[in-house]
Write a protein that binds this DNA or RNA. Structure first.
Lengths: 114, 114
DNA sequence: GATATACTTCGAAGAAACCAGAAATGTAGT
DNA sequence: ACTACATTTCTGGTTTCTTCGAAGTATATC
């Protein structure tokens, strides 16, 4: 991934409300959550939430699909992976022992997946 | 890590110049780089760079030490690890198969450390 | 068609971020 | 003490972000 997509993604996440939305969707998994449910869960005014969903969506961090009257939002796990990989890039330049603790993060977080 | 420290860190990284500085320092390793060298490497005006270094420093992403007339900046790998762990948190809620690709990032990035 | 529901877009005001030149501070060498 | 160098702080003007009520669009139900 390039800086040009990393900055908008970081920028989208650098906001209390949007970070909460994104983490909620990440927890929720592929089935996603309707905009209204997100608004209720986070106590956000619909218009503010919509603006924030739009920003996250434009950054590629979430996707949406319509289901009847509702619009369902889901986390884009690929984008998340790209962003994390980008932040880790070149972290090992010449000093693997520094990077080792970073490498173990995934293991700690995702023991079920090992 | 909590949202209260994650947002300032993401916010600090959500900027072309600051992201470039941080990645440069991450590549550089523990020996770090003087402010002037960073300015030359990135072609940034000293006053702008100084403001950005201050923001990164305040966010806890970098540290500094004086060496003669120069001030040497280094990446804070612990802060980086905390931030990445936070972003990955709960990513496996109920669906390990989604998280598996995330878990492999570290391995891909840091083969030398395995 | 009319009504209710679910969301989004519009708009405008206040807050915060950004930039880089100029001046100030701190350190080293003579 | 004086000069040179490295970096920070100050300053202002401009731009961008944030917020949320009100109005608009899309879908479903009767």
């Amino acid at each position: 991934m390039e800086v040009k997509s990393a900055v908008p993604r970081l920028s989208a996440l650098a906001h209390d409300g949007r970070l909460a939305v994104f983490r909620l969707l990440v927890q929720r998994g592929p089935e996603g959550l309707a905009a209204g449910e997100i608004a209720r869960a986070l106590g956000s005014p619909p218009s503010s939430l919509s603006a924030n969903l739009n920003i996250l969506s434009h950054a590629g961090l979430i996707a949406s699909r319509r289901d009847g009257r509702s619009i369902i939002y889901t986390a884009n796990y690929d984008a998340m992976r790209e962003l994390l990989a980008f932040l880790m890039e070149d972290c090992c330049g010449g000093a693997p022992e520094i990077c080792a603790p970073l490498a173990s993060i995934a293991g700690q977080r995702c023991e079920a997946a090992q």
